[in-house]
C-alpha cells in the first residue's frame, strides 16, 4: 500500500557516453493525474537528455506555475531548478542565463502560464533571443485550477462542463515566428518518436527555441468536443516532415530520395534530418512556415514537427557583447582591473 517508486531498475539498462542510465535523468514520482500528457513530455525530456549525454548538473530547469510548471520536479532531479511566479519564468530565466551562460536552460511552461498571465514575458524573451529551450505543455486549459479555458483553446472547442469557447485561440508558434524566434517546433505528448528528436535539436540550437507540445489534460479537457483531447489530436495530426536527430560526429545512415529530404546543421555540429517534406514548405523560410501554419489552421489540422529554424542568428549574449565567462567565475583581477584601466576609462569620458 504505497506510492513510491521502487529503487530497482532493469539490469540491462543501457548507459550513455557519460556512463549514466536513464534512471539518472529521472525525477521524483509525478503527482499529476494518471495519464496526463505532461508526464509523457517529462519522459521525453529524460530521453532527450540521456541521448544527448547531457551532464545533469549543467542544466537549469525554469518554470512558472501550473501542472506543467510542476513537472521539473518529475525529471532531472540531479539538475538545478527554479520554480518561479506565475508567468514570470522568462524574467528569471533571463537573469539566470545572463549570470551564467554555461548552463542549458530548459524553460517549462503551460498555455495559461505563457499565453495568459505570462504573455508579456513570453513575447519579450523571444524578442531578446535568449538562448534557452522553452517548452509549452499546451492542454488548452488551466489544469491546476480545474480546467478553465485558456487562451490557446480553439474557437468552438467544448470544455468538460459543456461550454463552447467563443474566443480565437492564440497560436504560440505563429506568434513566436512573428517575434523573431529562431527555432519553432510543435509536437504531441503522445508521439515520442517525433518529440524526442525535436527536443534534442532544440537543446542543440543556439538561440531561443520554442517547442509547443499539445498535451491532453485527461481530467479536465479530454472530453468529446475538445480539440485538445487524445482522440482529437491523434485524428488531426499533420507532420511537416519526419525528424531524425543525428548527433555531432555520427554518420547519417538513412537514405531518402532527393528533394524529399533536407539536412540542417545546428550550432554544435549535429544535424537535423527532415524527411518527406510537406509540399511548399521550407523550414528556413519564415513566409513558408507561416503559410504552413495558416493552411493547417484553415483545414483544422494540427501541424507538427519542425516549423521554422534560423541557424544564423545572434543570441542575447552576442547581441549585448557580454563576457564569455559566467559571473561566478570572474576573478578579482578581471572584475577589478586596476587603477590604470580606470584612468583610461575616465580619460575617455573627459
Amino acid at each position: 500500500m504505497t506510492y513510491l517508486k521502487p529503487k530497482f531498475h532493469h539490469p540491462d539498462l543501457p548507459k550513455n557516453k557519460l556512463g549514466y542510465t536513464r534512471k539518472y535523468y529521472e525525477g521524483s514520482l509525478s503527482t499529476l493525474c494518471a495519464g496526463c500528457g505532461h508526464d509523457s513530455i517529462s519522459a521525453a525530456i529524460v530521453e532527450a537528455c540521456f541521448e544527448l549525454n547531457i551532464e545533469p548538473h549543467k542544466v537549469a530547469k525554469m518554470s512558472g506555475i501550473g501542472c506543467s510548471s510542476k513537472t521539473p520536479a518529475y525529471f532531472l532531479s540531479n539538475s538545478h531548478g527554479f520554480n518561479s511566479v506565475h508567468g514570470r519564468m522568462p524574467s528569471v530565466a533571463t537573469g539566470a542565463n545572463l549570470a551564467n551562460r554555461d548552463l542549458l536552460y530548459l524553460g517549462v511552461s503551460g498555455d495559461g502560464d505563457s499565453a495568459s498571465i505570462g504573455m508579456g514575458q513570453f513575447v519579450h524573451v523571444i524578442r531578446r533571443n535568449l538562448n534557452m529551450v522553452y517548452i509549452v505543455m499546451n492542454n488548452g486549459c488551466y489544469g491546476l485550477t480545474k480546467g478553465q479555458d485558456s487562451a490557446t483553446a480553439d474557437v468552438g472547442s467544448k470544455n468538460k462542463s459543456g461550454n463552447i469557447n467563443q474566443f480565437e485561440g492564440i497560436d504560440l508558434c505563429g506568434l513566436a515566428i512573428e517575434l523573431g524566434a529562431t527555432f519553432v517546433a510543435q509536437s504531441f505528448s503522445g508521439d515520442k518518436a517525433q518529440l524526442v528528436p525535436l527536443l534534442q535539436a532544440a537543446m542543440s540550437h543556439e538561440g531561443f527555441a520554442l517547442v509547443n507540445v499539445l498535451s491532453p489534460c485527461v481530467t479536465f479537457n479530454n472530453n468529446t468536443g475538445s480539440t485538445k483531447s487524445y482522440d482529437y489530436v491523434r485524428e488531426h495530426l499533420e507532420a511537416t516532415a519526419s525528424v531524425d536527430f543525428v548527433p555531432y560526429a555520427e554518420e547519417i545512415t538513412t537514405q531518402y530520395e532527393e528533394g524529399e529530404t533536407k539536412s540542417i546543421q545546428l550550432h554544435d555540429g549535429s544535424w537535423l534530418e527532415l524527411h518527406k517534406l510537406a509540399q511548399g514548405w521550407n523550414p528556413e523560410d519564415k513566409i513558408s512556415a507561416i503559410n504552413a501554419l495558416q493552411n493547417a489552421r484553415k483545414h483544422h489540422e494540427i501541424l507538427t514537427g519542425l516549423i521554422y529554424l534560423d541557424t544564423d542568428n545572434k543570441e542575447l549574449h552576442d547581441l549585448m557583447n557580454t563576457t564569455d565567462v559566467p559571473l561566478n567565475k570572474l576573478t578579482q583581477d578581471v572584475l577589478c582591473p586596476g587603477l590604470e584601466v580606470l584612468e583610461s576609462i575616465n580619460a575617455d569620458l573627459r
Binding site: K5, P6, F8, H9, H10, L13, R22, L29, S30, A34, G35, C36, G37, D39, S40, S42, A43, S189, G190, K192, P216, V218, Y230
Partner: peptide, 12 residues
C-alpha cells in the same frame, strides 16, 4: 495509449 504506464515503469 497515453504512455503513462510505459513512462512510469521502474524496470522498463
Amino acid at each position: 495509449e497515453c504512455d503513462a504506464c510505459m513512462d512510469i515503469c521502474p524496470t522498463n
